[in-house]
Simulated scan of single mutants.
Amino acid sequence: MQTIFDGHNDLLLRLWNGEKAGRDPLKEFAAATGAAHIDLKKAAEGGLVGGFCAIYVPSGDFSFGKPDARGHFMTPAAAPIERAPSLEVTMAQMDIACRLDRAELLKICRTVDELEAAIEAGIFAAIAHIEGAEGIGADLSGLYTLYSAGLRSIGPVWSRNNVFGHGVPFAYPSSPDTGPGLTDAGRALVKACNEMGILIDLSHITEQGFWDVAKHSTAPLVATHSNVHAITPSARNLTDKQLAAIKESNGIVGLNFAVAFLREDGQERADTGITTMIRHIDHMVEQVGINGVALGSDFDGAMIPAEIGSSAGLQKLVAGLQSAGYAEADIKKICRENWFRVLRLTLR
């Protein structure tokens, strides 16, 4: 079985929602839980040994735009959200991660050495990630507390605007060049992340924001869960020019399993095949190189191919890569080693 380290999941969001409904997040993570994409049983079945666990503050009024007769859609950007309630949700989800860590169900890892040690010990190895930095003040207050708790990855924006920058909307077909990029506060956040050794995720930022980070960051460019715009022209996907910049920076892109970002027609249909996923990986490898391609599933946060189903089905993607002619050494890079390479270049 190929072991897999994944670049993005919404496990903490799911557990937080469950806790609000009266469920115990520790028991929910430890036991098989129906439609959930990740729990310890499913992860073990699929070879998932860890990943980036996102802290995400939902937009209460947000809903995806409905496709027209051609299958095209444009979702208006979610409204900005205020810092105080965002900080409360951010801390609540980080608290769940810390409780899982204390119970030795999960290990919040601060270095690659810690990742490797957790995996060797059979503990789910997590990189704590923030998807949309609304819980951090424009003066970066809160960042250092979160760092001390184990935060090692930040997406400055989700697909909405905040004090740090502008998020790319969900739209098909659409260029990712949908508006401005980083603000002055966003540039200060990038500088602080570089100094502290925090990875900067570009998956939800506008194209202009992508280029602003490329200009101001000294770290490899990373899109933890994005796909190929040349195949699926969604605003959330990366152009070949962006992929070339990721390659130039010695960075990485993680394949997003969300079907709307995989399918050429942009539709949200679970009958999307593994061959479609392989087609995106092939293009990424062609543009970025085999050392710059990984997985960023978006488990527990998106509709994924039914053929995969959950983290328990990850070896089906491995089999697809084998059938497509990928060498075992290259599959190992895509499944795990490339994330560790970039994290070694980024974390302190």
Rank of each mutant, 00 (worst) to 15 (best):
E248F: 15
K66Q: 14
G18C: 02
S226Q: 07
G135H: 03
R110D: 01
K27I: 09
G325L: 05
D298T: 02
A312Q: 14
F52W: 13
D330R: 04
E337I: 00
L100G: 11
L295T: 08
R152P: 05
D271Q: 06
E82I: 04
E88D: 13
C98Y: 10
Q315S: 14
V318Y: 02
A35S: 13
H283D: 07
K333E: 11
I154D: 01
G47E: 06
D39I: 05
E131I: 10
Q322V: 14
E207P: 04
D212G: 03
Q315T: 15
N227G: 00
S249F: 05
E328H: 11
R348A: 13
L199E: 05
A77N: 13
Q93H: 07
A192S: 13
G22M: 08
A294H: 02
K332H: 13
I200L: 12
D184K: 14
D330V: 04
T206S: 10
K41L: 14
V259A: 04
T224E: 05
S174K: 05
E104K: 15
D212K: 00
K332D: 12
L151Q: 08
G309K: 06
R336L: 12
S226W: 03
G186C: 04
V228M: 10
G155H: 07
N227H: 05
F124Y: 13
T145A: 10
A319F: 10
G132D: 07
H283S: 05
A44F: 09
E264K: 14
T346H: 02
E120P: 01
A121E: 11
D177E: 14
D24S: 15
S310G: 02
F64N: 14
P25M: 12
I198A: 05
K247P: 01
S203F: 02
D212I: 00
A294S: 14
R70Y: 06
G46H: 01
Q287N: 11
H229E: 06
S174L: 03
L106F: 11
R279S: 13
C53R: 08
V112K: 00
